[in-house]
């Protein structure tokens, strides 16, 4: 599991899905793109579509201009960089994934897959990378 933080919430992304963690900079904006698409960037000549996870989760976008960490995931042969506020650690999950006992916001619920108890007893929300890529609104049919 890759543990990270998005808008104050501790999240976990299955490490098997994550190709690498990069420092996203030099974003090229994409006019007319959906709001959760923050832009494009490249890593080793590979183009990445940068997703602002805060926007995907219905939170306000972070201030522009700062360099931010991003987890690189692949989906349908396209590479995406998921912007997070902070990357904590990569380690094995110590507990089972349990259902979330409370309602926690529509956009979060679409991406959330369950709760994981951290070793330091801070729970982490397991999130689905695909849901983040699809953005806050369900993809047009």
């Amino acid at each position: 599991m890759l543990f990270a933080e998005i808008a104050g919430t501790r999240v976990a992304i299955p490490a098997a899905e994550v190709r690498s963690v990069i420092l996203a900079d030099n974003l090229v904006p994409v006019p007319h793109a959906p709001p959760h698409v923050a832009g494009l960037t490249t890593v080793r000549s590979q183009a990445l579509t940068v997703i602002d996870c805060r926007v995907s989760l219905g939170e306000p976008a972070a201030a522009a201009g700062s360099e931010r960490w991003a987890a690189v995931v692949a989906r349908d042969s396209h590479l995406y960089a998921l912007l997070v506020d902070r990357v904590d650690d990569v380690r094995a999950a110590s507990t089972e994934i349990r259902p979330v006992p409370i309602g926690y916001g529509a956009a979060w619920q679409r991406a959330g897959r369950g709760l994981l108890g951290g070793e330091d007893d801070r729970p982490a929300l397991v999130i689905d990378a695909a849901a983040l890529i699809d953005g806050p609104a369900p993809p047009a049919a």
């Binding site: 494009l40 396209h78 953005g135």
Partner: peptide
Amino acid sequence: VKPLAPAVMQTGYYAGLTLLDDGQPIL
């Protein structure tokens, strides 16, 4: 020319993505 992610493709403004010699992606 490289393919674009579906979310960007759906905007209808772009046909693809390409990298310049300095590695900068452009649409």
